[in-house]
């Protein structure tokens, strides 16, 4: 009897060690996420549906472009509707060097000026959505330096095999800056995209959940066509619906200039 117990215990330890060994580390998963092909350039339309806790909707239509200049990623978003936000445009230069602050500009049509804005407000919510400036800038990628990551388990999420990853800001300062105390992500094992992310505030309370949906290949690149955010604190919801997604069509370099922000589309 004792021999059987010992054998069972040994088997359990061995199998659990084996499982742990087969799980990739959090850092490996993050690197795989960042290595995912995004194309050199991208153009797309986006419909934003912002819904408050009473169900009142605000809808924005945008056109955006993104292009890599070497390892530097430049993104521009132009608002087309509604009237009160039309012609607003946002430009960001995302540098690969961790120590180098990104550069950001916002064109506000009411001022008719391009305003330089600090990139350290990355935890601020982007123009009334439930995405922060950092969320918008990174899209489906992650900043390696901001978090330490641990792979918790494998899990089937709505028929998709995922790794469940826990990301914790490297220190309190970064946590305050990002507005997150912890993030749990469900990363699709096959395509290295997050299908669901749960965000917790710096006090550990549930903050918001981002669902990545309608993922399909465009020009050979896995592409999310719906991003949905439920903000658990405010009851506010944000839905981004992407259309007319085109990769590696010629996107002119001068789209990513202050001149282009002022001129609009």
């Amino acid at each position: 009897m004792n021999t059987t117990k010992t054998l069972l215990a040994t088997l359990l330890i061995v199998s659990s060690n084996t499982m742990a060994n087969t799980l990739p580390t959090g850092e490996q998963i993050a690197k795989n996420i960042n290595a995912r092909n995004e194309g050199i350039s991208l153009s797309r339309k986006m419909r934003m549906v912002l819904t408050d806790k009473r169900g009142k909707e605000r809808i924005r239509e945008t056109v955006s472009y993104r292009k890599y200049f070497g390892n530097e990623k430049r993104t521009v978003i132009h608002y087309l509707t509604p009237r009160n936000i039309k012609k607003t445009a946002f430009l960001t230069f995302d540098y690969p060097e961790a120590e180098k602050d990104d550069d950001q500009w916002l064109y506000l049509p009411a001022m008719r000026k391009v305003r330089r804005i600090s990139a350290s407000d990355r935890g601020d919510y982007f123009l009334g959505t439930d995405f922060t400036y950092e969320d918008i800038k990174k899209e489906s990628k992650v900043t390696l330096e901001d978090y330490t990551r641990k792979t918790l388990r494998e899990e089937d999420l709505n028929g998709n095999p995922t790794y469940v990853l826990k990301a914790t800001p490297v220190n309190d300062e970064v946590a305050e800056e990002l507005g997150y105390g912890k993030v749990i992500k469900w990363i699709d094992k096959n395509i290295w995209m997050s299908r669901k992310s749960e965000f917790y505030d710096v006090r550990g309370k549930p903050l918001k959940t981002i669902y990545t949906e309608d993922i399909k290949k465009v020009d050979g690149i896995w592409t999310a066509h719906r991003l949905k955010v439920d903000n658990h604190k405010t009851g506010h919801k944000t839905l981004f619906i992407f259309s007319d997604v085109i990769y590696d069509k010629e996107v002119r370099d001068d789209f990513f200039t202050q001149r282009a922000l002022r001129r609009g589309l």
């Binding site: 550069d103 330089r116 804005i117 600090s118």
Partner: peptide, 11 residues
């Protein structure tokens, strides 16, 4: 001129 230094924008 304008530039940013952390949370500060100088213009």
């Amino acid at each position: 001129f304008s530039n940013t230094f952390g949370a500060l924008t100088l213009r």
